[in-house]
Simulated assay, not measured.
Amino acid sequence: MLLLQIQTELDTTSLDTSAADAVTVWDLLLKGGFVMIPLLLLSVLAVYIFVERVLTIKKASRVPEQFTDKIKNLVASGDINSARLVCSQTDTPIARMIEKGISRIGSPLKTIEASIENVGKIELYRLEKNLNLLATISGAAPMIGFLGTVTGMIQAFIAIAQEEGNVSPRLLSTGIYEAMITTAAGLAVGIIAYLGYNYLVSQVSKVVHKMEYTSVDFIDLLQEPR
């Protein structure tokens, strides 16, 4: 009988442990309270911005092979219309900058440079679209998480104050860990948004470098003696 009782107690302890381990991440997130709603929205927005910007920047960085050489040969031979046609058929920032420069051929060199630079600024603005919003999310998400922790701690201490007699450690620990969930969630969203922002900035810098190199190369072409 004694062995049977011990075995029963062990089985009960094992079931309790298994039930505790069965708590999923989703269950923990639900315990975070109303603050988890804006954090969820910010996470979805951050992922959307990141994916949309990656696709846009990747498309902008693609330059067809022999594009620059073809433009050089057409401009050098004086076939300006064909050069503009090639640029118009290529949907990239570099092609649009070169097309603007070709359309200004015959004007002073400074005018051509200014025209290309203005188009470059517009293209840079398009590439950096919503990056500031992603940076804002990376800073705002942890702050919202901290806010949820503070409000959760306040609620936990109110519940403790309303308890009569000795406060159970379970009540105290439950209130604290539920409050800390929002901090963890906010930091997770903030870190992901921060890493995504820095990655996108680096990719934009690479595209801008290509734009600058191509524009300088085009200006040098116009300065060559004929």
Rank of each mutant, 00 (worst) to 15 (best):
L42N: 09
S43K: 02
S43N: 08
S43T: 00
S43Y: 02
V44M: 11
L45R: 05
L45I: 10
L45S: 13
L45C: 14
Y48S: 13
I49C: 07
F50L: 05
F50I: 11
E52R: 08
E52Q: 10
R53G: 08
R53N: 07
R53M: 03
V54R: 06
V54I: 12
L55F: 05
L55I: 08
L55G: 07
T56V: 13
I57Q: 08
I57E: 08
K58P: 06
K59T: 09
S61F: 00
R62L: 02
V63D: 06
P64D: 07
P64E: 03
P64M: 01
Q66N: 10
Q66T: 06
F67R: 02
D69R: 01
D69T: 01
D69N: 11
K70A: 11
K70I: 00
I71E: 15
I71G: 15
L74Y: 04
A76K: 03
S77R: 11
S77T: 14
G78A: 12
D79R: 04
D79E: 05
D79H: 04
I80G: 13
I80R: 11
S82E: 10
S82L: 02
A83R: 01
A83I: 01
L85D: 15
V86Q: 07
V86N: 04
V86Y: 01
S88E: 06
Q89E: 14
T90D: 00
D91S: 03
T92A: 05
P93L: 00
P93W: 00
A95Y: 00
A95I: 04
R96S: 14
R96L: 04
R96I: 02
M97G: 07
E99L: 07
E99R: 05
E99H: 10
K100A: 10
K100Y: 01
G101Q: 09
I102C: 13
S103F: 03
R104F: 12
R104H: 12
I105W: 05
I105H: 04
I105C: 06
I105G: 08
G106C: 09
G106K: 05
P108N: 13
L109D: 14
L109R: 12
K110V: 11
K110R: 13
K110Y: 06
T111N: 15
I112Q: 09
I112N: 06
I112W: 06
I112L: 07
E113F: 10
A114G: 08
I116F: 08
N118M: 13
V119H: 02
G120N: 06
G120A: 01
K121N: 13
I122H: 15
I122S: 14
I122E: 15
E123V: 07
L124A: 12
L124D: 13
